[in-house]
Amino acid sequence: MIGPEAIPPAGRVLSTTDLPLYVQGLNVAYGSRPVLWNVEFSATAGSLTAVVGPNGAGKSTLLRAVIGQVPRLSGHVRVFGRGFEPGDGTVAYVPQQGIVDWEFPASALDVVAMGLYGHIGWFRPVRRRHRARALEMLDRVGLADSAGRQIGQLSGGQRQRMFIARALAQDAEIYLLDEPLAGVDAVTETRIMTILRDLADAGRTIVAVHHDLETLQEYFTHALLLNGRVVEAGPVGGVVASASIDRTYGRFATAGAGIGAG
């Protein structure tokens, strides 16, 4: 079945230098519980990809494995054909809420200015022009009025927008967002999606964990269906039209319908 001729020579697989983000054979486990099984996906410039899947599907883990915050069992992550380098400013990551110390003595502006540390350097002062740029980013997310407030005093939606402003300040090529729309009101949701769409229109690459299947097609250009492994990935229209969403969430099992041939 597998002869030498059936095994193609090494090196053929990767012609991925143009792709902003390419993940291959990614395996992640917590202890001996696999979380991501042989995940492969890519994101093109100007695309808005939703990572969709049930609880525990590894959505957050995928984003964190891409930026090296979670150890990989095996597999590769290629950013424009190279390995990921933390601190080179290509990838901005917006974590889920609650990981931050909200008691920390910092204003919204301070936090957004931290997004510029990659450009400023760790040991050089934050100058007026940097603060002006941070304020500009806060303005872009409609938060300029709250720039001086201690972060704990911001509402849930404002916190989320502050994180997005911090990522914007990084001026990255790739934006990874972990549930950017969780717990925000409708107005904020629209505002955040407008910002993300503008970024994509400017040729940036957006990958976001998303929960609302209703808005999937409206908000995103691509979808990655995940439940431990990639069930399907591609342009959002095709993914929604296929039966893959059911196969991701296991709905037919609870509905008692039969199983289609895998």
Binding site: R33, G56, N227, G250
Partner: peptide, 11 residues
């Protein structure tokens, strides 16, 4: 995984 994703992923 397709039938019982949450159970499977917690296994």
């Amino acid at each position: 995984l397709e039938c019982y994703p949450e159970r499977a992923l917690a296994t």
